[in-house]
Nucleic acid binder design. Structure first.
Length: 198
DNA sequence: AAGAGGATTGAA
DNA sequence: TCAATCCTCTTG
């Protein structure tokens, strides 16, 4: 199965976020099928980092499509995003959940949990399970120049994909820009169960 | 120099 | 329901 090229990330950010569901994120001996993503648009989306962080705007300008945007949140967890640019609407895509495939033993070790559903069912969890951290900020995940053993493989099988509101944000909380496999037990929040912000 | 806020998680 | 924990950005 072929790895995704940079052209995959040169389309509308909402289309790419939807199409990423079902692809396999391969990361240094571990892998998982993406079952949940969220799109953030560089323009007109107050929840996107570009709306409040000059460093995010700088990243979008300097980096190539398919680059990893990794940041540290709540002083606790790394969050893994992919850069979309050069197509219609540009932005960042947060990878929120995986169905574990390869390297499950290493994931259990890094997570300190046994149940398969506890390994990658959230953005902080999957970064911890795969060993993704700040050192990977800016890494190319599409085309050539990828870190050894890293990339995104084409969908082995098509998944049903549903759209829902995004999780855990206060700005633009009503945008239905979360894409998930509604039948997967590995999503962070099941379809229709996101709590509105207070 | 200091403070506010944040794309989370797991335990109480 | 709540604490852990720290980076980025803004304000003084």
């Amino acid at each position: 199965m072929a790895f995704l090229g940079s052209d995959f990330f040169e389309r509308d950010v909402l289309v790419v976020a939807r199409d990423l569901v079902g692809t396999e994120l391969v990361w240094q001996g571990c892998s998982g099928v993406i079952v949940e993503t969220e799109a953030y648009a560089a323009e007109g989306d107050p929840a996107c980092h570009t709306a409040s962080r000059p460093s995010a705007r700088d990243f979008m300008q300097r980096q190539a499509p398919g680059a990893a945007y990794v940041y540290f949140n709540y002083g606790m967890y790394w969050l893994f995003n992919l850069l979309v640019k050069g197509g219609g609407r540009e932005g960042l895509i947060l990878v929120r959940a995986l169905e574990p495939r390869r390297g499950v033993a290493a994931m259990r070790e890094r997570r300190g949990r046994d149940r398969l559903e506890d390994l990658c069912s959230g953005p902080g969890k999957l970064a911890m399970a795969l060993g993704i951290a700040g050192a990977h900020h800016g890494a190319a995940l599409a085309g050539h120049g990828r870190p050894a053993g890293c990339g995104l493989r084409e969908a082995p099988a098509a998944l049903i994909v549903a759209a829902d509101v995004r999780v855990g944000i206060r700005q633009a909380a009503e945008y239905p820009w979360r894409f998930l496999a509604p039948d997967s037990p590995h999503v962070s929040v099941p379809l229709g169960r996101v709590r509105p912000p207070r």
